[in-house]
Nucleic acid binder design. Sequence first.
DNA 1: TTGTAAGCGTTATCAA
DNA 2: TTGATAACGCTTACAA
Lengths: 339, 339
Amino acid sequence: LTNEPDAMPVSIYDIAKQANVSPSTVSRALQDHPRIAAETKRRIVALAGAMGYVPSAVARSLTSNQTWTIGVVLASVSDPFTGRVVEGVEQAALEAGFGVLLSTSQYSREREAAAVEALRRRRIDGIVVMSSHLFARSSPAASQVAAPVVVINEQDPGEGQHVVSVDDAQGAWTAVEHLLALGHRRIGYVGAGDRPKSNRSRLRGFHAALAAAGVPPDAVLVLPGDAQGDHARAGAESLGPLLAAGATAAFCYNDATAIGLLSACYARRVAVPADLSVVGFDDIDAAAYSVPPLTTVRQPRFEMGRRAVQMVLALLRGEQPPNERLAAELVVRDTTAPH
Amino acid sequence: LTNEPDAMPVSIYDIAKQANVSPSTVSRALQDHPRIAAETKRRIVALAGAMGYVPSAVARSLTSNQTWTIGVVLASVSDPFTGRVVEGVEQAALEAGFGVLLSTSQYSREREAAAVEALRRRRIDGIVVMSSHLFARSSPAASQVAAPVVVINEQDPGEGQHVVSVDDAQGAWTAVEHLLALGHRRIGYVGAGDRPKSNRSRLRGFHAALAAAGVPPDAVLVLPGDAQGDHARAGAESLGPLLAAGATAAFCYNDATAIGLLSACYARRVAVPADLSVVGFDDIDAAAYSVPPLTTVRQPRFEMGRRAVQMVLALLRGEQPPNERLAAELVVRDTTAPH
DNA sequence: TTGTAAGCGTTATCAA
DNA sequence: TTGATAACGCTTACAA
């Protein structure tokens, strides 16, 4: 086969020799340079193909000061939220002829810093960060990068930081509106103590939807959730309080919370959705597999990845793209029914 | 901040000028070169730090003919199987000081070929491919790459191809052994028509376990599964035949199949595991969320990713690493119970 | 239209 | 122990 050990790939020099022209002519032929004879170009392109020439992005990068590479920094690839986002990133990058270099921090600040350092060494053109709660505006890593950085779902963006995020309040509103339309009036909210910002936004949407429908708020129906971030447990432990408060429906901070609540319902023989309607947030994969399948608010994960890259590219062009706040979409499945 | 537009990063030249030494001295100071005065080295390292020097991997790659980058080619990042594998890849790569460049084919042969071409241009050092049923030994892409290629879970490895895979027969054996230990004797198998190789291996393990226990095989209990690869549907549609055949337990080709079977049980009020025990294969995320949580055979996905990279690195060192066949591990959850 | 030569940031070989 | 110099593969003025 062609796999001889250490067979140096052919360079434009080799082609030049074969074609009896100078390297620069080859270079020009291989690009869309105007100043080259059509015939020469044809001849050289053909020869390059025949010789199995593959241009070296490395050399090109050295002269052009670009690597056509976008670094993605995230906590974990197998996080239920992550996959689609990365796919969106990859798709948008591919369309623009860029590659995607992956770095996971495994929720470690040190590893994140190391990842960013590695990206700097590699001279990547831009960075997309998925909110790791680490790469905050205060992060020393952030300020040192020359390349444009776009953060996805950053809770608390600093001045001048570029952000793509979901509209938490609007998403919550949609969920509650759905429950109201089904005739529910005693609607509970199960929050997340470890995500103050987005929790507040979702709670705001929750209240706004109630207010718009003329339903008076009731503090008993609002549960704070676990401060440590054990969402599933918070969901499970909220069942008692919810029932005690006379709730016929509950909107949960996210799907993990909702699925926790569902499991508590199952254990205590509370029929869903007959006795209690449940709505989550995120639309992680597990939401479709829960029993019953979970009605939830879908974060446009793929689109967030895409937009983040497009924002990086705009910044690379010297533009000043505005931050993006994407709408979340209600996905009705089987955990919600009329009151 | 430091983010001035197009501020060229400092090079060893800049440092050399500041330190009144030659660039090569700086280069030596920054490596672990033996022939340099300790004092000079200290001084230059300090200066480099102060000047915010970040070495250029691009330039280094040009001279060394290495990029310290491993390309990962897979069908989709959000495939339930994928995330952990990528994490394993990333982990092993990181340990060796390598980066991971991600390419998804989205199940398209063309995109896969394009991805490999892009990797070649970038002069990546090695490639890990997750069996996409495309990058087969016959693939023209494969033969043209100079870099070592390791394939994960390749069904039908060609001569000289490097492969990391799971031991299908052993995994199936473990599953069936578990059911036998619970007292089941009428055990069904639900296959996958679109994966002939691994299906055959798992079926072999299934039969071997039965034989070892002295349970006679019964062809009625072996279901072929969907030829098109709709595993969930195949699982659902197998419930009837299984019950007709008097099965008290079923081992499924994979979790998707098992979950399909579970949903059919739910719909037809067949109690799991009371009336029917079910075992899957893979241990995808959804397996833990199914109702009841699915007993299954776990593919060591993280480890497969790790090993694949280690194999690439070994090949890079000029070694001839043997192919790896990793054991799968039984994960007992709630879909299996004594007969 | 084509060729020559310098430069991108680093490493490595050879002298000094 | 340090410094010149060439080399890596390509692009791009500038010259021819």
